[in-house]
Write a protein that binds this DNA or RNA. Structure first.
Lengths: 207, 207
DNA sequence: AAGACCCCTAAGCGCTTGCTCAGTGCTGGG
DNA sequence: CCCAGCACTGAGCAAGCGCTTAGGGGTCTT
């Protein structure tokens, strides 16, 4: 039984109560990330949490609600990270560097959660999707403003601000696809590497 | 019935014979890209191809074989594009520019196929996966060699060649996730933008 | 005209899916 | 000591899944 690993994964969801609901969301994150939403069964989730299939429905109305909760929480955390960087003091280059480092390393550190929120969007119900899409637009806007600021200030050389924003976001998000804990890079190293590469993209590489 | 659209998608698979097998692979590409492999039913594929569910099994042994055929063909095309750029004449910057432009724009142009081959890898059987993984390693190696050449020649400023290779590949691949035909950028424009951004990443932006 | 071959369908098999519900044990207030 | 309320389970339902099978109709060769 993988119940111990599910408990580990649940650590990220410490504020979820009661305990059984927390174990379930941890198990779901693990299973969705490993196999994908559609390939994961409610029996599998319940089994990883050490419970019977029926127990899941005491805490969550449907399997989709579980995905939705994971998506909302994950997107809120990602947005918070981006907002912290965007609201920091310093030059546009400082803020961009900080944003990319934090955003990319989060996608590595929490690559299970990140994989779900980035690659299972289509499995959400229509209303839930709309809610998530709004959080994503906010994240995009924050990053675009940093890049726009840098371009306006002459710090950056950017030919296409929305396009560059899209590319930077895409680069960071895709970390969740390829990153594995047993690879040769730590999340911090990924963040460092990516911050440097992105500064190059906008023509503002630090010396 | 979506049979006409499936026919359209099948155009990319013109060399597949007989005609029914071609329509089926076109329908499968469309369905897998739209809903994902696990959420697509054999009835859906057959329906889009204008046939009964049983007809699928005359041309393909299993649903997984359909995914495998799409994956092999797609990866071979992607590899061919990378190989053409890597084998071209010119400086490392020329070749990198050419590689990224072609690779990124292919992922936009053929975003349905690309989405499947990049995001449904885990749904392949073990042996099929191993075969595909080999094609992916070849693509990675070709790009890494271009970047290494540029670094060796002093054309590029790269602190981490494997890491930068990974990032460039990741950037291009992820085009398949966000690109839609009704967006404001054409595949060629995406290729152009990305080539410019990547040259910035390696510190070799053209004037 | 007859037979062989191929492509296809209608029907359906065995299984798994998301989800439900009656009932069980455990806990805490009176 | 009792009983209400809660978390949970065992059993199972209806629906849908991947895939199989028996057989029908074209077309081509002989």
């Amino acid at each position: 039984m993988g119940a111990e690993r599910a408990d580990e994964a649940a650590g990220e969801w410490a504020e979820v109560a009661p305990d059984a609901a927390q174990r379930l969301v941890g198990a779901a994150v693990e299973a969705f990330a490993e196999r994908g939403y559609h390939a994961t069964t409610t029996r599998d989730i319940a089994g990883r949490a050490g419970m019977s299939p029926a127990a899941l429905y005491i805490h969550y109305k449907t399997k989709e609600e579980l995905l939705y909760r994971i998506s909302v929480t994950g997107h809120e955390r990602a947005l918070k990270i981006m907002a912290a960087a965007a609201g920091a003091e310093g030059t546009a280059a400082d803020r961009l560097c900080c944003a990319v480092r934090a955003f990319a390393s989060w996608h590595a550190e929490r690559h299970t959660t990140a994989r779900i929120i980035q690659y299972e969007l289509k499995a959400l119900g229509e209303e839930h999707y709309a809610e998530i899409a709004d959080l994503r637009r906010q994240t995009d806007r924050l990053l675009r403003e940093i890049i726009q600021d840098g371009a306006d200030a002459g710090e950056f050389t950017v030919r296409d601000v929305p396009g560059t924003t899209l590319a930077v976001l895409s680069l960071c998000v895709d970390v969740a696809r390829w990153f594995t804990a047993d690879g040769k890079r730590t999340p911090d190293q990924v963040g460092e590497l990516y911050a440097d590469l992105v500064l190059g993209m906008v023509g503002a590489r630090r010396p």
